[in-house]
Amino acid sequence: MTNLSAFLAQNAIKPDSQERVVSKRFVDPETKEPMKWQIVAVDSDRDEALRKQNTKRLPVPGKKNVFQPTTDYDAYLATLAVECTVFPNLHDVDLQNSYKVMGAEALLKKMLLPGEYAEYLKVVQNANGFDVGMDEAVEEAKN
């Protein structure tokens, strides 16, 4: 017989926050070791809200008053990355001012090199349980 108590909220194992070195360019001034970023997962409700926030209704060519929802996958991943980043605080005004940007998404893109940014997006997706490759994820987001 199965034990349904394993599925009760209080018995579910909560996902741990992860610490990762995202870039070796950010080092602790005292230890000279690369700084670790802290990443947490979001729940499915929050993920759905982030997807909706980055979805637009675009008109279908040739069909009057017919619209199709289209998710801006790059914007969604940027928003998800910001939402999951606990440390450093990407909403910190002083940190944004030091890079001369406004907004956490702009800060994240300015702080990281393109390869670092792409790798960080993969880390964030993995932290949230997405184990699909980028091509599969793009196709899934389109549908």
Rank of each mutant, 00 (worst) to 15 (best):
N89S: 12
N3C: 11
D28T: 07
T70F: 15
Q68D: 10
S44W: 03
R57T: 15
P29N: 07
Q53F: 14
R46T: 11
S23G: 00
Y99P: 00
T55F: 09
S98A: 10
A49K: 14
K14M: 10
E116A: 06
Q10D: 00
R51M: 05
E33L: 14
V22Q: 02
K24T: 12
V22C: 04
D92K: 09
L58E: 14
Q53E: 12
T2P: 12
F7S: 11
A104W: 09
V138M: 13
K24C: 00
N11V: 10
N128Y: 12
E19V: 09
A127N: 02
T71C: 10
K110V: 10
W37D: 02
S17A: 12
L77G: 01
I39A: 02
A137F: 14
Y120L: 08
M35T: 10
D135Y: 14
F87I: 09
L90H: 05
F26S: 00
S17W: 09
M111L: 11
L108Q: 01
P59H: 14
A118C: 03
V22A: 03
A49M: 13
N126C: 01
K14E: 05
K56N: 08
L8E: 02
E48P: 00
Q53R: 15
C84I: 05
A141N: 08
K56I: 08
D72P: 08
F7T: 10
N3H: 13
V60D: 02
V82Y: 01
A6W: 13
E105F: 03
T31G: 04
R57H: 15
N97S: 13
L108M: 12
L107M: 10
V27R: 14
A81V: 07
G103I: 13
D43K: 10
N128G: 06
K122S: 06
P69G: 07
P61D: 07
